[in-house]
């Protein structure tokens, strides 16, 4: 599949997703993530960050795309929008983790020193999840890790579906805020 054809397919899925089709949204996110991962790994190399940080960056970018999807004009091509968000957020994310862009020659040297501090610097997703308050944390765990639907979660926690959705939305916004507030 050519780049352009793939971009158009993603755009059609995202268009449906914005109209409320969660199945199409799932297809888009799942198709896009591997490409995002490759870009994140490249940038991690450039910035002298260990490859293990790439997945954190991937998640942060996905969260941003999700929260800012209202900024895509569906009548415009998807490519430039996606590239701009990824480009800005990946660099932003790595900078906030204390990574500076290093010239290629220094990458090996930097990698060696950075490995030592990498473990403590690394943003621990589990720790961040731990910062969410209940019921948000329970809802997030229920839907993401246990794979329950909103309806099942609502039944189990004896909340209305609407309340669960509102809580989930707030949790995602909180997650994004925690990511960005973390490394200062």
């Amino acid at each position: 599949m050519t780049d352009l054809a793939r971009e158009k397919e993603w755009a059609s899925w995202l268009r449906l997703a914005i109209a409320g089709d969660s199945h199409a949204y799932h297809k888009f996110l799942t198709a896009f993530t591997p490409h995002l991962r490759v870009m994140a790994r490249k940038r991690c190399d450039q910035f002298g960050a260990p490859a293990s940080e790439a997945e954190d960056v991937v998640q942060e970018v996905l969260l941003t795309i999700h929260l800012k999807r209202g900024t895509w004009d569906p009548s415009r091509p998807l490519g430039p929008w996606l590239s701009a968000i990824v480009r800005n957020k990946v660099v932003d994310s790595l900078r906030r983790r204390g990574r500076q862009s290093v010239p290629l020659e220094d990458v090996i040297a930097t990698l060696k020193t950075d490995e030592r501090i990498a473990a403590s610097d690394r943003i621990d997703i589990e720790q961040i999840l731990g910062k969410l308050k209940d019921p948000q944390r329970t809802i997030v765990q229920s839907i993401s890790i246990e794979g329950s639907s909103v309806r099942e979660t609502a039944d189990r926690l004896e909340m209305t579906e609407v309340a669960v959705r509102v809580s989930l939305h707030r949790a995602l916004k909180g997650l994004a805020a925690l990511y960005s507030g973390r490394a200062t």
Binding site: A17, I18, A19, G20, S22, Y25, H26, L29, T30, T33, Q59, L62, L63, H66, R69, G70, V140, I143, S144, I145, G147, S149, V150, R165, V166, L168, H169, A171, L172
Partner: peptide, 12 residues
């Protein structure tokens, strides 16, 4: 798991 969360979130 994050993708699952995003998909379940209320559409904008």
């Amino acid at each position: 798991e994050l993708i699952e969360l995003l998909v379940q979130d209320t559409p904008d």
